[in-house]
Amino acid sequence: MPAFDVANKIRDALDDIKAADLDDPRLMEVLGLAENLVDTMKLFFGSMDHSLLSEFKHIGSYISRTRDEIAALRPNDIHGSRIPTAGAELEAVVNDTERATESIMTLAEDIMSTEATDLETYKMQVDTAMMNMIEACSFQDITGQRVSKVVATLTHIEERVSRFSEVMGVMDAETPMTDKEKWQAENLLNGPQIHGPATGQDAIDALFDGETSEAALGQDDIDSMFD
């Protein structure tokens, strides 16, 4: 029962006692004080109930909105279906490219080791190997489709996470690197750059041939050393 209603009940009970026409003045005095106390309590709990209710309504609406936004993220779909599928697609890409490379390289090695004593036989062997190489290159079409599916999954996740972050006003938290991540950051390179090598082979050659000194490197090169 809300505190406001409890106070009302006590007030009613006090009125009943007073109506009983008691003779003892001290008891009437106590009842008067009790009435004052109950009225004060009524005012206090009344305002408190109202502000608490308002706070709880606000929190309830926030939780409801958060739940709706999390539902819109479709985390079960992402975790249970999309990410495992994308992982399986990438694994298939790695396997397909490895198999194709293996085939092409074996065919090339076979041709290189073929004796060219009988030219007609040699030409036939080379033609067959070349056809097999061309067939092996068909992996590119399949891997292209697989990679497109993975890109679509990443885009799907990115859109939903971005929307969630925007709506909920989420700020990025600092997360410490694991020991392995620290080692990799300090010792490994980042791998191929998206738009080709940062420093071209010609610039590297010039550095090793002594045509360019470290001191003669451009500002961008110097900046990158301090970034």
Binding site: P197, I204, F208, L217
Partner: peptide, 20 residues
Amino acid sequence: ESKTENVIAAKRAGVNNYIV
């Protein structure tokens, strides 16, 4: 990857040549 600082670090460490 061929960032200049990596090429220079390798050169300073005594690499004889560097291929991208």
